[in-house]
């Protein structure tokens, strides 16, 4: 068991957003979390990654047998958690090369490994760029600055490829992508799937799931997982729309 979320309640500025979530993710699995806007999908992703604006009022998250909520943000990343941001942050003046090299070497130091040499690093960068079909010269560009929407999302997958996480959370990585970019992002994810890692794919639409086949689909509504199933659930949702879920929930 890689990740276990138990009865998680999360509030922001006193307002409860997540109202009791239970979820188990094992190595080798892809979980899709779907649901209408404003139901807590991104909040869940942010809480796992460690964003500090949120208050966990109840419940716990166990990751690799450890209490995740006690770990600082960077330690979670060093333990293999990766969040692909819905809105990647532009950081003018920090080059992609400095950014990635600092990240990789900080992670390596945590693991007791020697830092990568300059040439090893550049080689790795080139290799991973190809994975997400990034043609442009990334090295000297500032992080996400002046990137198009699609480039930003590809850049998230590129970073994921560089850092080789154990648990990757893709927060609406598909939103705003044209079909080519979507295919590239999905290919990237598929190439990075391994028996010893796992993905949580948060999405509003079913279309990414045509390319990245989930093992499980969960529907998040009003801060709770109201329905879980296999990949067929995504198709059903697409067909019937979220109104169907809303009706089912209110009927309970």
């Amino acid at each position: 068991m890689l990740l276990q979320i138990k009865n998680l309640h999360v509030a922001i500025e006193g307002k409860e957003i997540i109202k009791g979530i239970d979820l188990i993710v094992n190595e080798g699995e892809v979980h899709a979390i779907m649901g209408p806007n404003g139901t807590g999908k991104s909040t869940l992703a942010s809480v796992i990654a460690g964003r500090e604006d949120y208050e966990v009022t109840e419940g716990e998250i166990i990751y690799k047998g450890k209490n995740l909520l006690e770990m600082p943000i960077e330690q979670r990343a060093r333990e293999g958690i990766f969040l692909s941001f819905q809105y990647p942050v532009e950081i003018p003046g920090v080059s992609m090369a400095n950014f990635m090299r600092t990240a990789l070497n900080d992670i390596r130091r945590y693991k007791g490994l020697e830092p990568l040499s300059g040439s090893e690093f550049l080689l790795k960068m080139e290799e991973k760029k190809q994975l997400v079909e990034i043609q442009s010269q990334l090295t000297n560009r500032s992080v996400n600055e002046g990137f198009s929407g699609g480039e930003k999302k590809k850049n998230e997958i590129f970073q994921m490829a560089m850092l080789e996480p154990t648990l990757a959370i893709l927060d609406e990585t598909d939103s705003g992508l044209d079909i080519d970019a979507l295919r590239i992002v999905a290919n990237g994810v598929n190439k990075l799937r391994r028996p010893d890692n796992a993905f949580i794919v948060i999405t509003h639409y079913q279309r990414l799931l045509e390319y990245v086949t989930p093992d499980f689909v969960h529907v998040l509504f009003d801060g709770r997982i109201v329905k879980s199933g296999k990949k067929e659930l995504a198709l059903e949702l697409e067909e019937k729309g979220y109104e169907w879920i809303k009706k089912e929930v209110s009927a309970l």
Partner: peptide, 21 residues
Amino acid sequence: FYLRSRGIDQDNARLLLMYAF
């Protein structure tokens, strides 16, 4: 948050941002 979420130490993240500034 973005920098730290990639495993970068808090002090290093500060340095990167100050330098970028």
